[in-house]
Amino acid sequence: MDTIIQCENITHYYGQKMIYEHLNFEVARGKILGLLGKNGTGKTTIINILTGYLKPRAGICRIFGEAMERLSPAAKSRIGLLLEGHVQHAYFNIEQIEKFYSRFFPQWKREAYYELLKKLQVTPVQKISTMSCGQRSQVALGLLFAQDPDLLILDDFSMGLDPGYRRLFVEYLKEYITAENKTVFLTSHIIQDMELLIDDCIILDFGRILLHEPTSYILERFRRFRFDSDAPAFPANDILRNTERIGTHWETYSFASAAEVERELVKNGATVSRLSEDKLSLEDAFIGLTGKY
């Protein structure tokens, strides 16, 4: 299996504040990988490192086998980059920006861009700076489709979008990446949107990767367990994650089966009753893994 993105031992600090230490991950060709994490866990930092706009304190990332600091023009032409907030050259109008980018990419698909923009209530000479964030997102997406890159790096693609535009963005993107077998590396703070898109999921905690698993594995195996108990506390371990008392009952999250969870709970002599198990959405699973705070 081809590796498109490879990050080895990435360590980065902002001043004295550690962001990661020895972060390792890979993205295989054709995979859609979502990077999830609370605010401040370094999602955008990873995107910046990957695209060569931040030099980590240690470690190396490679895209298409090339070090991120010295990506060749050929490698860059194969990477579609969406910046946080759908930032584009706002002084252009719709026609001008298409004309500008088209000359850089030999495989430019002009019709893909205009096809997407047909649905927007904008004129071809409307400046991007006068558009709403939703409209700008469609321009940015249209440009990515026209570029037709092998790898898409999308930084917080949901940012600033209302539910309609978010859904539109996700649907178009999903259709495109599925049909064209693209590799995608994306972040978003709206996890429901990610759930519709991603094959694999990296959940970042402060300073490390908490989990890197296929989304289907998380959705199938990770469960919330509710139960009653008179125990004052339960120890945290690999089986019991984020165990806490909610009102009169307890909640814990686990990849283990109900039987294993019950065994773990009673191990220290606690009494446990009315143990129930809930399937989770990706957002609930994220909360279960990282905690609410």
Binding site: P73, I79, L83, F105
Partner: peptide, 11 residues
């Protein structure tokens, strides 16, 4: 908005 990233990302 650090648009220079887009410019420097050109092939």
């Amino acid at each position: 908005n650090r648009r220079l990233k887009l410019t420097l990302h050109l092939p």
